[in-house]
């Protein structure tokens, strides 16, 4: 797999992990126990943990094969992907100001990480 494929895999794993964490942790519906649902915590939490560990392993491969100044700015794709999927799958209400804010954050992370 090319290094860009690995970076994309990393981005996706972070996104899946964070979506799982949010689904497991959210308590904003009445009667939702959040993280305490189930004896070992919310089952989805563990999917998130697995995605997080897998992301860490793939990230090591990325760092082994690419410069951090290339890999790190590309990881800021996460800010876009997570916002898009939070809006789409988790039905979070994302207004125009939040989209513009995310765009500025991506630019900032690219500037810091790329230099």
């Amino acid at each position: 797999m090319s290094v860009y494929g690995l970076i994309l895999a990393c981005v996706c794993l972070v996104t899946v992990g964070q979506l799982c964490f949010r689904v497991a942790a959210r308590r904003d519906e009445p009667g939702n126990k959040g993280i305490l649902a189930g004896p070992l915590g919310h089952p989805i939490l563990w999917l998130g943990v697995i995605a997080f560990i897998a992301h860490f392993c793939v990230w090591m491969l990325v760092l082994n094969r690419a410069d951090l100044s290339v890999a790190y700015p590309l990881m800021s794709l996460d800010y876009v992907l997570i916002t898009v999927l939070s809006s789409w799958l988790l039905k979070e209400r994302v207004h125009s100001r939040r989209w513009i804010g995310v765009a500025f954050i991506v630019l900032g992370v690219v500037l810091i990480g790329g230099s």
Partner: peptide, 17 residues
């Protein structure tokens, strides 16, 4: 996890930057 129990992911994740 305690943050995500209270805030939207599309709010908390960008702000974590």
């Amino acid at each position: 996890l305690a943050v995500l129990a209270r805030l939207d992911l599309s709010l908390a994740f960008p702000l974590s930057s």
